[in-house]
Amino acid sequence: MQLQCPMPKFDFDLITMGHGSGGLLTHKLLQSGVFEIFNNDLLNQQHDGASFELPGKLAFSTDSYVISPIFFPGGNIGELAINGTVNDLAMCGAQAKHMSLALIIEEGLPMADFWKILQSIKAAADSAKVKIVTGDTKVVEKGKGDQIFINTSGIGIIHPKANIHHNNIKTGDLIVISGKIATHGIAIMSVRKGLEFETTIESDTINLNHTVATLIHKFEDGIRFLRDPTRGGVASVLNEVTEMTRLGAYLNQSSLPIDEQVEGACEMLGLDPLYVANEGIFIAIVDPAIATDFLQVLQTDQNGKYAAIIGEITNEYAGKVVLKTRIGSKHIVHYLTGEQLPRIC
């Protein structure tokens, strides 16, 4: 994301405890920073909360962002905090409309970094066509946080034709992935202290709401289920699906789209890409009757160029996710246990 406007003159180079005191420093930070950037009618009421009306059936979602490092190849914690919640709503079949933004800042965060993050939040919110309508800023002592934590909550309007629920999933449905897997997780790992390795891999964090809206508009309830495979990766989402539906998921390893560099990094670190976190992609489980058209439409979208059908729902392996390897053998794909840790040799 590009910086869109220069940082205003603040009295301090770093965020201090005073900026969270609720006093003059907080006021100045909000007036010349937050309100200035996110400027919109609801926020400008400067009330304790935002009052508004929305039509139709609504979806409501919240997520907290504690990523380290806060700046990473392809993005930063700010845009991630917007895209993440926008995408969670999109997976419910909803277009995000209004969001809250809560910042927990560790004292000592450079004001310039704070400004960059706010700019990214603004750019991501504009791109998703969502308004930040209420928020909160707290500052915690050095050592009590990790530079900045962000929570966003969002309200969105569910598309009237959407009917997305795991109860709709049936045997024979096809599993579609909208893009290359494991990109975000490996981009983050490549810059994490102690694990740095040289690569041009960038996070694919992006809002998916417009893409999903186009698909729902066209395919309506042919789309049975949507989920973004963030933490825990593709494996975890599909395990949740099979657990909830008591059906099986049969995946084809050779159909899984993955960037060559990402695959190489996974090999090197000893990580299974099925468990690596994703950002800018989603899994769709769709009626086989629409699958080919669905894939075609998705592939013409900027966010779906590498979309692929990666497997199907079966009644053969009830409650299990099974991977057919490139060699032709089959094995069960379990839930991730704890954190994926790089291997020794």
Binding site: G270, Y317, K320, V322, S329, K330, H331, I332, H334, L341, R343, I344
Partner: peptide
């Protein structure tokens, strides 16, 4: 361990046999 024999059998147990 990511290289442990028990972990290998647990994580990659053959889909058909285990069922």
């Amino acid at each position: 361990s990511s290289e442990g024999a028990c972990a290998a059998y647990y994580h990659y147990q053959n889909a058909d046999n285990s069922l």
